[in-house]
Design a protein around this nucleic acid. Structure first.
Lengths: 208, 208
DNA sequence: ACCTGAACACCGTTCAAGT
DNA sequence: ACCTGAACACCGTTCAAGT
């Protein structure tokens, strides 16, 4: 992953991949994903654009590293476990928070996840469960739900911010108000609720 | 799909927005989203790039129109409304199929949906349900799950296709095989199963 | 080992001007 | 009404060459 060395070397590298990722996360938070270009990032670091390609092989690899950084707080904690449902709910909320902590965080992570360039934190955290198959099914449902709705939330936020700053664009045609915490939690609870049905082997719940 | 005009107009437009969207969908299926540029599209149509901007105001608006086209097969309400769960499951599968029917369909629709430039077909189809709130919660959970996992599926597909064509890249480090139909359906069934729990007012299913 | 300089092959979008 | 021509302000990436 990292070409340089971890022990105190005779010649310290002038810039490490970590430094580039640091700067990228910082720039992302300040200018957003559309303005996060390799050229802009190089300028920020005080280096030629081509220099970045000594540290990373492509922009997508860089964004994958940024995604991994964004997702670090989602890692399982020893205090976590209870039932699968509770653990999943906690992790879902943690993922939500982690994505919201960075500008365009959901969009960045969404593509890295789709490209398979970053590990899914829910899959990792729940992989230790005894019912492996159910754990994976739950991780799939929650991960995609949370990333998708947070992407939606963040886009609306920046659209609102832009609309608020723009001249003469006061009438927003948006049909409903900002997403409340419930708008996020209720579908999450729905998914968590489905775990019990699956485990109890309940048949066709929608027949009645 | 639709003939330019149904009545004989005095001056038929040389090109209509429909034509541009037709060509865009066609080009998308042939070259994929990364190579779908305004310049390439203009070339395909036989027009200058700037000419496209008489018909659409931006590339994003064009992709929103493409998204709407991709989503049209999802629209019809399920004929036998046996319950919210069944209707939702049918629509979820229909959405999956619609996205898979076009190259990079999930990615295109994902961003249009996040930007709020296209209507969510599940929300539309389920909005007539008596329990409005539950319908919206279900639509949220299923829409984001399906779009997210289909995005993932399609990326893996094109990565595989590329890897198969690439020289000397036979050993794919992917940890598991292609997604089976079950890998899609099981989490969907989990969400659908959660509906009954929500409606029955069952409390904390993961406590035991 | 780490970076510069210069180039290649592109982008989305605007806008005066044509017909 | 519909489109051309030309420009503006950018992109990601490669690669020989420097230190």
């Amino acid at each position: 992953m990292t070409p340089p060395d971890s022990n105190p070397s005779p010649r310290a590298p002038r810039r490490t991949k970590e430094d580039i990722v640091d700067a990228a996360v910082d720039l992302l938070d300040r200018v957003g994903l559309p303005d996060l270009s390799m050229r802009r990032l190089a300028e920020e670091i005080g280096v030629q654009p081509s220099a970045l390609y000594w540290h990373v092989s492509s922009k997508q690899e860089l964004l994958a590293a940024v995604s991994a950084r964004i997702l670090t707080p989602v890692a399982p904690r020893p205090s976590d476990p209870e039932g699968l449902g509770q653990a999943a709910a906690i992790l879902g909320h943690r993922l939500h928070d982690a994505l919201l902590a960075h500008r365009d965080g959901a969009e960045v992570v969404s593509s890295s996840l789709a490209l398979g360039l970053v590990a899914s934190p829910l899959h990792v955290a729940l992989s230790a469960w005894e019912d492996t198959v159910t754990a994976r099914v739950v991780a799939d449902a929650i991960t995609h739900y949370v990333v998708g709705i947070t992407f939606h939330e963040q886009q609306r936020r920046s659209a609102d911010a832009w609309g608020a700053a723009a001249p003469g664009a006061s009438i927003t045609p948006a049909s409903f108000a900002h997403p409340s915490e419930d708008a996020f939690s209720a579908p999450l609870a729905l998914i968590v609720g489905g775990i019990a049905v699956r485990q109890d082997g309940v048949g066709h719940p929608a027949d009645a």
